[in-house]
């Protein structure tokens, strides 16, 4: 399907990503003991980000997951590892397309998205890396819901 992030139109197999996540969601979320905290939604929901800033923050979030999250989510469960690999490679593919569009369209990062992403990083760095990575992965449906809204 094609998604609109600000000026960028990107086709992504979100259904495949969501299917992969749904298959491991319970397992991943069971590894996250701190249920009172959110990395993506604290203090404000992603849905508050202005349309013009969506392109920038979408690219930042894909990069966040690729660079920081997936590598710290390796488990003892082969099935879970395979699904994480599937999601990670899908994010890599989507980020490449969004990155190309971002360069062509020069979709700048507004103050709001910069602030929002800073907050996400602060939430992430406030926990030890494995807990933060597992929590971020467990919140993937928050990100997918937000992206799905971008159709």
């Amino acid at each position: 399907k094609t998604f609109h992030f600000g000026a960028c139109r990107v086709s992504m197999s979100l259904a495949e990503i969501r299917a992969g996540f749904t298959a491991i969601k319970a397992n991943i979320q069971s590894r996250d003991p701190i249920r009172t905290l959110s990395i993506l939604s604290h203090p404000h929901s992603l849905h508050k980000v202005k349309s013009a800033d969506r392109c920038c923050i979408a690219h930042q979030l894909l990069t966040f997951y690729v660079d920081k999250v997936f590598k710290h989510c390796r488990t003892e469960d082969s099935f879970v590892n395979r699904k994480i690999s599937s999601i990670a490679n899908s994010f890599l593919s989507a980020r490449r397309r969004l990155g190309q569009c971002r360069e062509q369209n020069n979709c700048a990062c507004g103050e709001e998205s910069t602030e929002k992403f800073k907050q996400i990083l602060a939430n992430y760095e406030g926990l030890n890396v494995t807990s933060a990575a597992m929590k971020s992965l467990g919140e993937l449906d928050i990100l997918l819901d937000w992206m799905e809204k971008s159709r």
């Binding site: 690729v66 660079d67 997936f70 590598k71 390796r74 082969s78 590892n81 395979r82 690999s85 990670a88 490679n89 994010f91 890599l92 593919s93």
Partner: peptide, 15 residues
């Protein structure tokens, strides 16, 4: 996958 090569130290995943 490309992710494993570029971001996960060239790791391999068993099927």
């Amino acid at each position: 996958g490309e992710y494993e090569r570029e971001y996960a130290n060239g790791s391999w995943i068993p099927i």
